[in-house]
Nucleic acid binder design. Sequence first.
DNA 1: GTCTACGGTTGCGCAATGAGCAACGCGGCC
DNA 2: GGCCGCGTTGCTCATTGCGCAACCGTAGAC
Lengths: 258, 258
Amino acid sequence: MSNAATETANGVQSVDRALRILEILARSGESGVTEIAASLEVHKSTAFRLVATLEQHGLVEQVEGRGKYRLGVGLLRLAGATSARLDVVQEARPLCKQLAAATGETVNLATLSGHSALYLDQVAGPSALQPHNWVGQHIPLHATSNGKVLMAWLEEAELKDLLGRLPSYTGLTITSKAALRKQLEVVREQGYAVAVDELEVGLTAIATPVRNAHGDVICSMSVSGPTFRLPPDRVDEVLPLLIEAADELSHRLGWGMR
Amino acid sequence: MSNAATETANGVQSVDRALRILEILARSGESGVTEIAASLEVHKSTAFRLVATLEQHGLVEQVEGRGKYRLGVGLLRLAGATSARLDVVQEARPLCKQLAAATGETVNLATLSGHSALYLDQVAGPSALQPHNWVGQHIPLHATSNGKVLMAWLEEAELKDLLGRLPSYTGLTITSKAALRKQLEVVREQGYAVAVDELEVGLTAIATPVRNAHGDVICSMSVSGPTFRLPPDRVDEVLPLLIEAADELSHRLGWGMR
DNA sequence: GTCTACGGTTGCGCAATGAGCAACGCGGCC
DNA sequence: GGCCGCGTTGCTCATTGCGCAACCGTAGAC
């Protein structure tokens, strides 16, 4: 009967709508009820009730009494519980902390998710405030050291699927497929990837693979910081520390035990 | 105040149930459909359909084909969008204000920065005796309640790096590393730190830790005032208020639930 | 200062939709 | 092999969630 427009295979309608509201808010940052209702193609009141229910659970909150809605802190609690059960993150946390302390820079853990890199965890260096929290964000693969590492050990078929458009973010972003493939070759050979000013001018990052018991690359660990603090010779200093930490993590996940 | 307890208030029933499933999974780590249905006091099939809808949006995932369900990485993505705009100071402000009003003393928020404590925010109490504004100032760690809290939960390596010279400011300043370590032990045990006349004669302060979703101590909240207004018995009165405020802040930042 | 418009909020009644039931397939365990 | 427990699915009914329309703030224009 209901040959709905988009993918509405099955599922509970109102729940589906509620979850779409969360996604809308994630994308827009802030939205009003009317705006949400328009996006969902439902009546204002329907959208309002859904939002109200989400609000009761702390997943959304309204900004300043009367006004728009945005995602709430309840999500942080849920996400905390999520990453707590991801054994990789759990296992990695002390290592990341130690690495962050040793290098003074920010350490990230990223994995492949869809067509981009999903940042699983972040430990900031001793600098006062967290630079920019990337946890949960999807970051383009071709412009980051993490992304290069995650792609480098993929099967040809999977890789091909990921290499779509390669948008440019700075003058140094790799935008040609051939050049990227060549890069990945280098990454595979040397066992790590570097990205200098490729995603953002002034941002340098180094990444290495983390393997599970089967030897699959399941995520990548990176150290990143402002380019002026991470010139080539400093990168050479940090690299062994990063590799040591990532190898230790792989080891704890069963890699190399046989 | 504390959510989750009050149910069946109003809102969209199916959405409410779906969100409760998320909370159940956050608490249990993994649950089967039958188990969830029992918790919700609904039929198995109902629980299944709700879970299936959550799964379509990546908020839950089933472990290994046939089996139990757990929270999914989609939550990390949503949480990423949340924490992108999340600012500790901003989140803390109303709580600090309330605490300042309740205690009549000055409330501060401090974090670790290099080798000292950086004061992020300050809300003065209504008293006539206004202390000078510490926001943006770097204050020695070993002579303040905030500093002790910030050090108490550090890794040994990081702590070692911080314990250099311990200059004396008053007759009561802790200047021996052994004594300081002992003090930190106490702080860890009792969950708060006190400093009386250690930085300045006539200045008393109490501080408690604020944690993020991972449980890391990211900053400390303190109440401070002239020692004559904060004798030991008054400290005992203020303490629960401070702890409540700091815990609430931690809660808003995602701590708890595990 | 008044008027208008816009956005969030709420009571009401109908029917769409989500919940319960029961049956099924599939493992694991006696 | 048979039993039991699990997740999963078709069917049916009435619960419940939806659309409507009216309400009530605030904000901006004239």
